[in-house]
């Protein structure tokens, strides 16, 4: 089964040899299943002059309960792109892992990296595969952003793609947010985003937007200073993807919280 000529796509390979490993291929009993699994919440992405910044809060909820305080929802998809997951946590994590392997697999089989649009289209078809489960309440929505190595203008190299349960991708200009707190995060970004932000400014803005989301959405967690749990912040630039260290995000989060002590509205 491994030696068939086949394709360069790992998910297509799986659909032949191990379809049970694909989230969309599992039979689900009828009925709404939204309440049985934790939900991951808000992710924001912002284009900066050097690429993109993506940040996610750390909360997962199950109905009115907090299922996890320190879930990590923003991860590198490959060396130059990032993926954040909102929606049903288990399926989201699985899709994200699958997407990471998908990109690496293609790279190894073909000896070349997929274009950023190719990656986004691939992710869209994987999300579409989960449509049945989404209609039963187990929806997963990713946010995908990356540094486009093929971009002619370095200022336009950072790109963001959003999706819906039926697929996508939809390219966003400047910034986007997904998840339960996205309304508030997007509203905050709408007022504060300026093209050509430096990376530190974009990081600060992302954490501010998450704070605003947590302020008005119970399912989004703000910076937890007492437990030292801060948002996950990653960047994708010409140098590749990079996750800000705990101390760096702590400094930004503390500065944001201190600012809100003076002015709660930001």
């Amino acid at each position: 089964m491994f030696t068939n000529a086949g394709t360069s796509s790992f998910t297509q390979f799986l659909s032949k040899v191990a379809p049970e490993l694909l989230p969309g291929r599992r039979p689900l009993p009828p009925g709404l299943a939204a309440d049985i699994a934790p939900h991951a919440t808000t992710i924001v992405a912002i284009v900066s002059e050097a690429g993109v910044v993506m940040a996610g809060d750390r909360r997962a909820t199950m109905g009115n309960l907090i299922a996890s305080r320190d879930i990590e929802k923003v991860h590198p998809a490959d060396a130059y792109s990032l993926i954040g997951i909102a929606g049903t946590a288990g399926i989201g994590m699985e899709l994200m892992r699958l997407f990471q392997v998908e990109l690496e697999h293609y790279e190894k089989i073909e000896g070349a990296v997929l274009s950023l649009d190719g990656k986004a289209n691939r992710l869209a078809s994987m999300i579409r595969g989960n449509l049945g489960a989404a209609m039963q309440g187990l929806a997963v929505i990713p946010l995908f952003a990356g540094f486009d190595l093929a971009a002619t203008d370095p200022a336009r190299a950072g790109r963001i793609f959003s999706f819906d349960v039926t697929g996508g991708p939809y390219e966003e200009t400047g910034y986007d947010a997904i998840g339960s707190g996205s309304l508030f995060a997007r509203a905050a970004l709408k007022k504060r985003f300026r093209p050509g932000l430096s990376t530190p400014d974009a990081v600060r803005l992302a954490v501010e937007a998450l704070y605003d989301a947590a302020d008005d959405d119970t399912a989004t967690g703000g910076p937890d200073l007492s437990r030292k749990i801060y948002p996950v912040v990653m960047t994708a630039t010409a140098e590749g993807t990079h996750r800000l260290t705990e101390s760096e995000t702590a400094a930004v989060a503390e500065a944001v919280v201190a600012g809100r002590m003076e002015n709660p509205g930001g």
Partner: peptide
């Protein structure tokens, strides 16, 4: 080593210092 993600450890590097490709 992270267990939540299937990305290789060089991408998921949480140590201080330069990460990435």
């Amino acid at each position: 080593k992270p267990t939540a993600s299937a990305a290789s450890a060089d991408l998921e590097d949480k140590d201080p210092g330069p990460a990435g490709a």
